[in-house]
Design a protein around this nucleic acid. Structure first.
Ligand code: FES
Ligand code: FES
Lengths: 149, 149
DNA sequence: TTTATTAGATGATATATATCATGTTAAATA
DNA sequence: TATTTAACATGATATATATCATCTAATAAA
């Protein structure tokens, strides 16, 4: 579905958003740890997100990554996915033809369109703030820890 | 969504099914051409499908690939996807955690579940026969040709 | 204003996926 | 039975994706 980079990117954004709401500014090291992603890879992904104005960063001691509270409400999943994976998930054909097209549809086009519309709907209407809610009260998780004691 | 191998596999199956309904037995060369897939790669994929009893084959002159008419109705998309990509699409977490789980859900789990259920539904209820119908009357296509004259 | 700290930039390496090439085996037919 | 045809098996190569390593630049605090 999403690339690994995109998965890590979304998870990182959710973590950063949640920390930002608590007036904190996590470092790459902390983010990678809490999200369960490889640190150098995560660094690269976060840079891209900064370039795309999804998240912001400050260098130096006590630096780190953050998201403006207003933006936490306006940033939707699509923004993150597009920044990392591009619009392929919106435009690709389910059977890998050049593009998904109504005039030259593949055999599964009609069935697949329904799925894809659902996916679009979800990416378009889910914002970062919603995704942080479950984290606070321990209903949702950002990594599968190896030890559950 | 699906791997390239799986996309080619599905397209090949649809083509073979359609030809089988017309009592024909296409060769790898023909299938690859009609489906727009690289021939040697397609060969490998078809072998896998034979091993998994999705399609059948006959060697030698006038040999080729075919599917029993009864099977054309009973083979569903899931069979093909599982044979090539495995059950990941049913079990993976949308954010790449070890597995999709109700007891340790990721932040997008609830929204994603809806999408995934739709996808499951589609893979479980769509059989090869349905997918051949549009081919016959030119409503659907298996490849994007470069020249549309 | 020096030093420690942390992000940024860039390129190298590894791994997975996709693609290609070669030789082998089964079956039809001349 | 010899010959041709086409699938089968296996391994090599290429490409994309994921991961790591190194150095640079900015900034906060000593
Ligand atoms: S053309 Fe294949 S999904 Fe639309
Ligand atoms: S746990 Fe992530 S989709 Fe179910």
């Amino acid at each position: 579905m999403f690339s690994k980079a995109c998965e890590y990117g979304i998870r990182s954004c959710i973590y950063i958003a949640n920390q930002s709401l608590n007036s904190k500014r996590p470092s790459i090291k902390e983010i990678a740890k809490e999200v369960g992603s490889p640190e150098p890879f995560t660094a690269k992904i976060l840079q891209k997100l900064v370039k795309n104005n999804i998240i912001e960063s400050i260098k130096g001691p006590s630096g780190g990554f953050f998201i403006n509270v207003e933006n936490i409400h306006s940033i939707i999943l699509r923004d993150i996915v597009f920044a990392i994976d591009g619009p392929g998930i919106y435009k690709n054909c389910g059977l890998g033809m050049k593009e998904c097209s109504e005039v030259k549809p593949c055999p599964i086009h009609n069935q697949f369109k329904i799925i894809k519309n659902g996916l679009k709907e979800m990416l378009d209407t889910t914002n970062l703030h919603q995704l942080t809610l479950g984290l606070e009260n321990g209903m949702t998780f950002l990594k599968t820890e190896n030890c559950d004691l």
